[in-house]
Amino acid sequence: MTKLLVSLLSLTLLLTGCGQKTADGGNEGGGKQITVALMPKSKGNAYFIACRKGAEEAAKELNVKLLWEGPTESDPAKQNEIVETWITRGVDVIAVAVENREGISSALRKARAKGIKVVTWDSDAATDARDLFVNQATPEGIGTALMEEAAKAMGGQGEYAIITASLTAANMNEWQKHIKIANDTRFPDAKQVALRPCDDMKDKAFSEATALVNAHPNLKLILAICSPAVPGAAEAVKQAGKQNSVKVVGLGLPNENKRYVKEGITPSVILWNTMDLGYLAVQTATALARGEVKAGDTKIQAGRLGEMEIQGDNVLLGKPFVFTADNIDQFDF
């Protein structure tokens, strides 16, 4: 029993030690400062790291407290849990990059009912579950842009294959739908011959792409719609010695793809400026919390981005950006 007490005490000390550190961090943000809670679709994803950089820049300029938290596992319920925890905590505005539209809308409605402003960014929830949507590109815009670039790279005809993160990723399924629509209506000579998941891992994307180029001798293009898959597929094409017959196009970060863009394997990488996306999300959320903008306005002052257009209840960031060999060196993220 004595020994038990000793171990208890040491455990207590251990926990208190951890707790003290958190106490300092937690109490800094007292006072009247606005708290913006920003959630990515998932943590540990390079795409959202760039968003976070922009978000922190905006938070500094506006002197707001920024909370950054998101799911670390593949469990789709995790976003709900965090939103509901923020409701209990009491924040001024919640901004969510929605992973799962149907699942999260009930939690966001609850937040609005408690007087918390809600913004969605990157991807939208049900329209009555949020005040504004910071729209970097609609699924239709992304799907169409991907298919356009793909068609350009394969000369408008031939076989192509898609590599996605997982078969259950809601946003990617939405993009695929619009890729298919664009394919059927505008590029009828292009034919999708395979769809493979890569678990959002570069190594797996590499193996899948290798099998694809060898199994489909007429394959002209791999369309990689999750960011680790673009360099993974390009490396596979390179190692299979198919640089001249197979190209890779996809959604990815410039830094990860520079090498392949310059080598000509990846003629173009599509992305909006993710730092600006995070920046604009925090600008919009803060303006909403301060009452500087409301539904029905047609423009918003967004710091260094200047005046941005609001269409309906969508704040528009602009079209997705196409990185090519000519401009990719100007970006570092």
Binding site: M201, K202, F206, P228, E235, E256
Partner: peptide, 9 residues
């Protein structure tokens, strides 16, 4: 096997 390392590996 690759020119860079993915932490999700």
């Amino acid at each position: 096997r690759f020119p860079d390392v993915d932490p999700k590996t």
